Deep mutational scan, measured.
Amino acid sequence: MDVFMKGLSKAKEGVVAAAEKTKQGVAEAAGKTKEGVLYVGSKTKEGVVHGVATVAEKTKEQVTNVGGAVVTGVTAVAQKTVEGAGSIAAATGFVKKDQLGKNEEGAPQEGILEDMPVDPDNEAYEMPSEEGYQDYEPEA
């Protein structure tokens, strides 16, 4: 019985440690998101679009440190934060509304985080759909 109880105690310690790591990862992701939003706020009209992409990228980098179902929630929060940063930029006159959601080359930025393969159960990952990809044929 002692062996059984000791095993359960060790398992509990492992769960607590994993929860603490997840909590730490979420806190880091939130900190990076805040950094990115402050970065966007300090940019001029020309830099705002690039700044919004930076927020998304920093958040995406930190999301990889967070495991399990938390990833889905962090990704949703990050996307809403990026959308909010863009709205703030438009409201303050840093950028025109028609410039939001495009990178410096004018290509749409939507789907940055949505296409990231995420499995809350950590069982399997699927690649994003290939609808947006084109076949590449090298020139002879």
Rank of each mutant, 00 (worst) to 15 (best):
K97I: 01
G41F: 10
P138K: 08
A69F: 09
A124P: 02
T22R: 02
F4N: 01
P117K: 12
T81E: 01
A53V: 15
T33P: 00
M116I: 14
Q62C: 12
D121W: 14
A11R: 01
V74I: 03
A11E: 00
V77P: 07
Y125W: 06
F94G: 06
K102Y: 15
A29L: 06
K60F: 11
E105D: 13
A90P: 00
K6H: 04
T64S: 10
K23L: 03
K12W: 03
V70I: 11
T44S: 09
D135W: 02
Q99K: 07
E28R: 10
F94V: 04
G101K: 11
V82C: 09
A76E: 05
Y39R: 11
E28W: 05
V48D: 01
K10G: 05
A53F: 00
G73H: 11
I112K: 07
G7W: 05
G14V: 12
V95Q: 04
M127F: 12
Q24I: 12
A85V: 04
P120M: 06
T72C: 08
E61F: 05
Y39I: 08
I88C: 07
E46M: 11
Y136M: 04
D2H: 15
E139A: 15
G93P: 10
E110W: 01
Y136D: 02
K34G: 03
E105N: 03
K23C: 01
Y136T: 08
Y39A: 07
M5Q: 01
K80R: 12
T81M: 12
Y125K: 05
A56F: 14
E114V: 14
V52A: 11
V63Y: 09
V40E: 00
L113H: 07
A56H: 09
Q109V: 14
K58P: 01
P138Y: 04
T33Y: 08
D2I: 01
E114S: 14
V82N: 03
T72D: 10
D119R: 15
V15S: 02
P120K: 11
A17M: 03
Q99S: 01
A19V: 10
V71C: 08
A140Q: 12
V3H: 06
Q134E: 01
E28Y: 12
G68P: 08
Q24L: 07
V82E: 02
V15I: 11
H50V: 04
K80G: 08
K96V: 07
T59Q: 00
G93W: 11
T75W: 14
D135Q: 07
V26E: 00
T75Q: 14
A89R: 14
A29C: 15
V74Y: 09
E104I: 07
E83M: 07
G7R: 13
Q62T: 09
V77M: 13
A89E: 03
K34E: 04
K23Y: 11
A17L: 04
A85I: 11
V71I: 04
A29Y: 04
A90I: 09
G36A: 13
D115N: 15
N122V: 06
L38M: 15
T54G: 07
V15E: 10
G36S: 10
T59K: 01
E46S: 06
Q79S: 04
S87G: 12
F94H: 04
K12E: 01
E61C: 06
F94M: 10
K10A: 06
E110G: 03
G36D: 09
G51S: 08
N65C: 05
V3Y: 14
N122E: 11
G101Q: 14
T44Q: 00
G84A: 15
L100K: 01
V49H: 02
A85M: 13
E20Q: 08
N103C: 08
E114Y: 13
E126D: 06
Q134P: 15
L38S: 02
E131M: 10
Y39C: 07
N103A: 05
K21Q: 02
E130G: 06
N122D: 10
P108H: 08
F4Q: 00
S129H: 02
D98K: 14
E20Y: 06
K32L: 03
K45I: 12
A107R: 10
V66E: 00
D98V: 12
A27E: 00
L38P: 01
D119L: 04
K10I: 14
A140D: 14
G7C: 04
A91G: 04
E13G: 05
E20F: 09
E83N: 11
G68E: 06
G41L: 07
N65A: 02
A19P: 04
A78M: 08
G106V: 07
Q109F: 03
T54P: 03
A69H: 13
A17D: 02
K12D: 00
G47T: 14
